[in-house]
Amino acid sequence: MNVQIDRAVKLTRGYWFVDGFTEMTSGGFFVLLAGLLLFGRNASPVTFPSWFLSLAVEISILKFVGILAAILILWWLKDHFTYPRTGFVRGKRVTAAQIFMITRNVILFLLLPISGLLAASLFIASTNSVLASMPVWFPIGLGSLWAVFFALAGEWMSLLRFRIIGIIHLLVGVAIGIWQSAIGLPTSPAKIQPGIVQAPILESIQRTLISLCFLILISGVILIFSGLLTFLRYRKENPVPYTENG
């Protein structure tokens, strides 16, 4: 009984993903984001700080607008399709303390090390070799991070497909890393000129960005595919809205 209850609780946590809409919407957003980053930006930086700042602002705006649009689309879809079929659930509220903890961890363990490394590369010659190999380790690292995230989410909500998606993300990250390594890495510049983006560093950053775009793009396609399969199964199981007569 306890095992069944635990499973019911886990599946209830995952109710937000029961219809596949969340995956399809997030996947669509990822594909758009990758497309805009790949084709819609000017890659001719004058100075490193201004280039990095413009990229950060651009990604932040895209994410904010995209996530807002995705949430509105999701609400509408669920209100008109899912809730009339299998019912309405209000998820547990995330407290301010939890939001603070998540934000702090993302800044501490993800953004600060990457920003620090990029900033250090302007002044310390030895970090340039690390920066030069960034097109290889960045997609592998990010793919691994997403794999862990999906595996944990799959365990928390008892969703097998999330664990599979996690494994695929890891494989895709490694594949992109191998691809970048096979092309050959840019060599580190012999002389450091603080504040100025030098050609090898610029090449490394641009190739990392391309790696990131491919990872986001493939991730988006995987999510859309997974969401579509989930949606088709959900629609088959719940073809019409529930009525009083059953």
């Binding site: 946590r13 309405f88 209000r90």
Partner: peptide, 11 residues
Amino acid sequence: SSVESADFLFL
């Protein structure tokens, strides 16, 4: 226990 609230149909 795992949600904030749910409706009759869901339950």
